[in-house]
Write a protein that binds this DNA or RNA. Structure first.
Length: 479
RNA sequence: GGCACCGUCGCCAAGUGGUAAGGCAGAGGUCUGCAAAAUCUCCAUCGGCGGUUCGACUCCGCCCGGUGCCUCCA
């Protein structure tokens, strides 16, 4: 069974067939760099990173491009507010983007084009559109003439006539039709500007993706992704520009991820109900957030909440602990007979791939991972239950699937200590005192003084410390 | 107003025209001095009302409830 994905254009799941053999070109709309990224940006990045990873897992030769919009009204406004050059604003937030997304284990795409590095390519497209009579200059601005593109509205399911009638579009004397959108915007004095045949100005928002997608991935490429909110007008306009220019559909499969909600409402800047990634990292491990983000299907809305994050943390801890315990148990086995780690195979991997092949159903993939973890834990607890080689295969499978999902990237020890640091920030535990209490308890246990032992454990619990007596001695963690 | 989408166990979340994955929480068992962790077992008939069908949670209609897009937005 091959990969199927939901194409926003047809509103159906379609078989994925790359345009050129084994090559896959994918372009995803990145962010406008004028502020810190919030969870919604994180979701889009994680969703498409997971798709990217899975395509590579399937053996495709993937060329992934994700842009930075580094010139736009919001950036200019921000620069004015802070009294710094606009380049300073974009520099700052691009650096923040890398930091925040890096912690989410979002891998860097092959190409990360910036709008301001592609002004000539945009001007070339705009000129071509003007030449073809599909765009017109008006007092230093250049607009795309929507009426020149009959298929306008197909992606978003909108009817141009009704859009005009609905007319919530702002009145602009310079436009021939309210639906026309800017390809080039005349700059006001003091604003950033580039020379153009129509005078100094800056590019409209939509043209950058058309120009950069074409440059790096070709006239027509396989997948174009982004958040659902980009369907209209951004992607609709992009299609109009690109197709208007070349005469060919620019994209074969359009993919859009759902929103992150807060109390059932879309998280957004304008509503002010957003959490930035770095705020969340103050109290939650980034990998916990990643797990939360992929625990629902990418097209569904997800409700962001403290409770959901806590649930995700429990699940992730269970995985790390299971991986840790199994790894130790296998190391012991290894002494008796050498085990060869290979590529995981068998029912688990097949189920995992079947889930991912079904429009990247990470929720089902995680269900299979949970089942596999349980089977692995069973072996860890009782190594006689199945051959060690089988357990190794399970462990390998879990790690490989985790790799595709961007999970379990750290060593269990690393993860546990990072989680500890995070939780300890508020508790500020006295490690010395904890060790002493544990020692005291174990001494009491040796003399079967259970009352004292329990008193020690209660004291630790009071501090927020949880005790576990294991074969390797007493271990503790923060509850 | 126009166009979409959603409503599944206490909570989160998959799914299919033939009788509901997984996780959290909960109950009981194993293990443990007792716990914890792990593991085993148990735990839903799918918003409401009609219709199509041998059979619907899954298809159609209506209703109720919720959201999104139509404007910058991942």
């Amino acid at each position: 069974m091959g990969l199927k994905l939901f194409n926003s254009l047809s509103r159906k799941k379609e078989d994925f067939v790359p345009l050129q053999g084994n090559h896959v070109g994918i372009y995803v709309c990145g962010v406008t760099v004028y502020d810190y990224c919030h969870v919604g940006h994180g979701r889009a990045a994680v969703v498409f990173d997971t798709i990217y990873r899975y395509l590579k897992h399937l053996g495709y030769d993937v060329l992934y491009a994700r842009n930075f919009t580094d010139i736009d009204d919001k950036i200019i406004k921000r620069a004015a507010e802070e009294g710094i050059p606009w380049q300073e604003v974009t520099r700052k937030y691009i650096a923040a983007f890398y930091e925040d997304m890096g912690r989410l284990n979002v891998s860097p795409p092959e190409v990360e084009p910036r709008a301001t590095d592609h002004i000539p390519e945009m001007l070339e497209m705009i000129a071509s559109l003007v030449e073809q009579g599909k765009a017109y200059a008006s007092d230093g601005d250049v607009f795309y003439s929507v009426s020149s593109f009959p298929a306008y509205g197909r992606l978003s399911g909108k009817n141009p006539q009704e859009l005009v009638a609905g007319a919530r579009v702002e009145v602009n004397e310079k436009k021939q039709s309210p639906l026309d959108f800017a390809l080039w915007k005349k700059s006001k004095p003091g604003e950033p500007a580039w020379d153009s045949p129509w005078g100094p100005g800056r590019p409209g928002w939509h043209i950058e993706c058309s120009a950069m997608g074409r440059k790096y991935l070709g006239q027509t490429f396989d997948i174009h992704g982004g958040g659902k909110d980009l369907i209209f007008p951004h992607h609709e306009n992009e299609i109009a520009q690109s197709a208007g220019c070349s005469g060919h559909a620019p994209v074969k499969y359009w993919m859009h991820n759902g929103f992150v909600n807060i109390d059932k409402e879309k998280m957004s800047k304008s509503l002010g109900n957003f959490f930035t990634l770095r705020d969340i990292y103050k109290s939650h491990h980034p990998e916990v957030l990643r797990l939360f983000l992929i625990s629902s299907h990418y097209r569904s809305p997800i409700d962001f909440s403290e409770k959901n994050l806590e649930d995700a943390e429990k699940v992730l801890c269970r995985f790390y602990e299971g991986i840790d315990a199994a790894t130790r148990a296998l190391a012991v086995q290894e002494v008796k007979e050498p085990l060869e780690p290979g590529r995981a195979e068998g029912p688990f991997m097949e189920k995992f791939e079947a889930a991912m092949n079904d429009d990247f159903n990470t929720a089902v993939a995680l269900a299979h991972l949970n089942e596999e973890l349980r089977a692995l834990n069973t072996w860890t607890q009782d190594p006689a239950s199945e051959p060690a080689a089988d357990a190794l295969n399970r462990l390998t499978g879990i790690k490989q699937a985790g790799q595709v999902l961007g999970l379990f990237a750290k060593s269990p020890g690393e993860f546990q200590s990072e989680l500890f640091e995070l939780k300890n920030q508020s508790l500020a535990l006295d490690t010395q005192k904890i060790e002493t209490l544990i020692e005291e308890r174990n001494a009491a246990r040796r003399t079967k003084d259970w009352a004292t032992a329990d008193r020690c454990r209660d004291a630790l619990a009071q501090m927020g410390v949880l005790i576990e007596d294991t074969a390797r001695g007493t271990e503790w963690k923060i509850k």
